[in-house]
Design a protein around this nucleic acid. Structure first.
Lengths: 197, 197
DNA sequence: GTCTATATATTGATAGAC
DNA sequence: GTCTATCAATATATAGAC
């Protein structure tokens, strides 16, 4: 996947522009309606790209799904780069939970963008299944590193608890159509983090 | 929806038999492949019922989804009737977490049957969305009652924490394809329950 | 690189004989 | 109540002119 900074001629720039628009539209539609219910025609329409032209950028629908997963991964890594600026691991974890809490309203409406993707793709047992799981791993590994820096031997277990609590709260917040379910659980998590030795 | 005990003539018995088979097959396929990826032909084949005959029992595919949700609800209520035999609320909650842990392997393979259903239907915003949410509510309300019996004023919040922790662990167990993620979190939950005043 | 037209397959759903 | 045949709509994907 070429990066914008590597683009030179106008053709390649146009390519990146349309490709990015397609991925962005697909990401949004996958989140709102799910992968299975989103058609290529939906993505093409939302991107303002003719349907036939989509296949110049992506050979199959699964290729688009993969690109969306990559886009999510990039965003996750970018968030963690920002959070890593905090002075200590505990402050970073707390900041992470606040970031999650900020997503309450959209999660209540359409679920967690990562969680719903993993839930939908997790059963397939193909390469997309594993690619989606990577999104969860990114969070778990980052959190695990923070707990490790706090001197915890059970860092991985704590990280799994943190990430899964967020995912469960997101599912319930969506079911109840109530952002408070998610924000309430993040508040609980902050207390939990602060109480750790 | 007629009950088996009300059946008399052979026609009605056959009706219930086929209907039950269709619902059971649909429930299994929805769990393994998701609602959207499951076709009526799949359900018909698995039930050994001709495709055209499915429409005698269900007007639309959504009607089958609704019937599956009802079947889940019945099973949930039945489990709670069993758990209610335990002497106290704390023992009932502990038993519940053990029941969840027992589902580790199947959850690692295909996700939580209830969670994936709520995740898939939750975004639709229609009546099926609300029907699926009822499955989560059943668990939350039962758990809430137990915490209330334990004298907790924040019973509902505790119940939400319990149920969402299970759902999050189920999602991660499926992503990691590792039952231990779910069983580990239920162990954590049992300690949490026992530590409550 | 772009876009219209269309092939091909699959789906939910119906018709109508039995 | 049952089941075969099939419709109509929709989906992914391709062909080929520009």
């Amino acid at each position: 996947m070429p990066r914008l900074s590597q683009m030179t001629d106008s053709a390649t720039v146009a390519r990146a522009g349309k490709r990015d628009r397609l991925v962005e539209a697909a990401r949004d539609l996958f989140h709102r309606n799910g992968v299975e219910r989103t058609t290529l025609a939906d993505i093409a329409k939302e991107s303002d790209v003719p349907l036939g032209n989509v296949y110049y950028y992506f050979k199959t629908k699964d290729d688009i799904v993969h690109a969306v997963i990559d886009a999510h991964a990039d965003q996750i890594r970018e968030l963690f780069r920002t959070l890593d600026r905090h002075r200590g691991p505990r402050a970073r974890l707390i900041a992470f939970t606040r970031e999650i809490a900020r997503s309450g309203p959209v999660v209540a409406d359409h679920g967690c963008p990562l969680g719903t993707l993993c839930s939908e793709l997790g059963r397939r047992g193909d390469d997309l299944s594993e690619a989606a799981a990577t999104l969860m791993r990114l969070r778990v590994e980052w959190a695990s590193e923070q707990f490790r820096l706090m001197g915890r031997k059970d860092a991985t277990n704590l990280a799994v608890t943190l990430v899964s609590t967020i995912q469960g709260a997101a599912l319930l917040a969506n079911s109840y159509r109530d952002p408070a379910v998610l924000t309430g659980q993040t508040r609980y998590l902050r207390r939990w983090i602060n109480d750790l030795a």
